[in-house]
């Protein structure tokens, strides 16, 4: 997944990345989940582009049709219509990119912070480490979702703000992980050797420590995406997500909950979309974790 080798080498000579790739390929659940993730990405991108080009397909997600409001799924509206007669299927496809954008970009933000903070703490150690880790511990005491909700409500809900806030709140796990990796790697022979050769901090961090911690960082990144997707869905549900008329999976459910006993399709389908998206990322991430874990190899 990370790097590919031109042709499979014999097991003994294969690089760790190649071995990880081989193990990942052997994991059917992981491959299937990765396939779903890719499909989701393609769908989100396609309908984002269609929307920007002004091509309403299968229907305009924001076109209202009050003659056909709250229609159950049929041959015209495959997943039914909402209280304004908007096509739920089109809105689901149109909202896909919101979830994925929030997922990926928020993870990028949280990784940038987490890796930097963790690297500083792990590399410098001593009181720097102590201070940073106490702050991390303190942040970890906060109820994550409530913290995100508070911040988003105060800054004002927009896709940009939501991404930044989720990113700012969820970096602590990565920081802890990177710090732990660095503390171990720091003592390894090759880092000692690099130091003996006179290499300085930044070079050691970027050339030796980070590449060797890349695998677990990648795993947390993949596992972070569904967390962000679920957080965004929760915010949307409470009315603090990306604002209407833009459809998001969370706000379709939020709008639909009023008609819960008459229009089950307004609740069921967007929720399935969230579940499927989050699940495929979790399963991919877990397969990736199993593939890069060197521990099981030694046994």
């Amino acid at each position: 997944m990370i790097t590919t080798t031109p042709e499979p080498l014999p097991a003994a000579a294969a690089s760790p990345a190649a071995r990880a790739l081989r193990r990942f390929k052997a994991n059917k659940i992981g491959l299937f989940a990765l396939g779903l993730v890719c499909l989701l990405g393609v769908v989100a991108l396609t309908f984002f582009i269609l929307d920007r080009l002004g091509i309403p397909w299968p229907m305009d997600p924001n076109a209202t049709n009050l003659e056909r409001k709250l229609m159950p799924p049929d041959s015209v509206n495959w997943l039914g219509t909402d209280n304004l007669g908007r096509d739920v299927f089109s809105r689901l496809l149109n909202g896909a990119y919101i979830s994925l954008t929030v997922g990926f970009v928020a993870v990028f933000v949280s990784l940038s912070i987490g890796v930097t903070v963790g690297a500083v703490a792990g590399y410098f150690g001593k009181w720097v480490d102590n201070l940073i880790m106490r702050v991390v511990d303190a942040i970890m005491c906060f109820p994550t979702f409530f913290l995100i909700l508070t911040a988003v409500a105060l800054v004002g809900p927009s896709i940009f703000n939501i991404i930044i806030v989720i990113g700012l709140v969820s970096w602590t796990g990565t920081a802890r992980l990177v710090r732990a990796e660095f503390l171990t790697l720091r003592e390894s022979a090759y880092v000692q050797a690099a130091r003996a050769l006179g290499q300085r901090g930044p070079k050691i961090i970027f050339r030796h420590l980070l590449p060797n911690a890349a695998a677990p960082i990648l795993v947390t990144a993949v596992l972070g995406v569904p967390e962000a997707i679920l957080a965004e869905a929760g915010l949307s549900f409470l009315g603090f997500g990306v604002q209407p008329p833009q459809a998001t999976w969370g706000n379709i459910i939020a709008d639909g909950k009023t008609y819960i006993l008459d229009a089950w399709w307004l609740i069921l389908f967007p929720g399935l979309a969230i579940l499927l998206a989050a699940l495929s990322f979790y399963l991919t991430g877990d397969a990736l974790r199993q593939a890069v874990e060197t521990r099981s190899e030694r046994q």
Partner: peptide
């Protein structure tokens, strides 16, 4: 993983129905 990926508010409404 299905449990982790379930949005709580969605389950609430489905169960409530």
């Amino acid at each position: 993983f299905v449990f982790i990926a379930l949005p709580g508010f969605w389950v609430s409404y489905l169960l409530a129905i």
